[in-house]
């Protein structure tokens, strides 16, 4: 069983060929790291997997819900962190996972006052709370400190043990065992 499968997928963005006839199958418990230079299509691959983009040719089969972290916050700046994450948790019918990313002390802080790393943790906490089997993480380590990176490793390990899967795009090595997909 695969959670998401790319079948001979070609992606052209803005007239530029990013990748051609890409095959990728991700099974439960698998972690795939997408690597490659800037502009090689790592983010586009994640957006394709999320269904936000359509491939130029080929097919993408997705059998489960996904959760995405990218460089945008998607949290209302004027609300407190607990309220902003709580709103998404209500939408996902889940409970906000503030503790998992060491955010309990920031629950009452307005989102607009969070630092880069704190806002990154908040996004990761939202992904962990969704309960979606497939996580799509776009540069998840950006802005994270050492402790944050360790919390992320833990969260990913727990997620994989529970039968989930992760596709992460990252320049820097991530903790744990990853299958690498190198884009050129």
């Amino acid at each position: 069983m695969t959670l998401v499968a790319f079948r001979s997928v070609t992606c052209i963005r803005g007239g530029r060929l990013l990748f051609d006839s890409l095959h990728l199958a991700v099974a439960p418990g698998e972690a795939v790291q997408v690597t490659g230079p800037n502009g090689c299509g790592k983010s586009s691959l994640l957006r394709l997997a999320a269904g936000l983009l359509q491939p130029t040719s080929g097919r993408i089969e997705r059998s489960v819900r996904v959760a995405l972290v990218d460089d945008r916050r998607a949290l209302d700046g004027e609300r407190t962190l607990a309220d902003a994450l709580g709103w998404w948790a209500q939408l996902d019918r889940s409970l906000p996972a503030l503790e998992a990313f060491g955010l309990d002390g920031l629950a009452g802080v307005p989102v607009r006052l969070l630092s880069t790393g704190q806002a990154r943790r908040a996004r990761l906490a939202r992904v962990a709370a969704t309960g979606a089997p497939l996580w799509l993480l776009d540069e998840p380590l950006n802005g994270l400190d050492r402790a944050g990176a360790l919390l992320l490793d833990q969260a990913i390990a727990t997620h994989l043990e529970g039968g989930g899967a992760v596709i992460a795009a990252s320049h820097v090595p991530l903790g744990g065992a990853w299958r690498t997909l190198a884009l050129t």
């Binding site: 999320a50 936000l52 996904v66 959760a67 995405l68 990218d70 998607a74 949290l75 939408l91």
Partner: peptide, 13 residues
């Protein structure tokens, strides 16, 4: 759109 809220909602179907 700029903050990614629309995309996050779309991902949720």
């Amino acid at each position: 759109r700029a903050d990614g809220v629309l995309d996050q909602l779309a991902i949720r179907g």
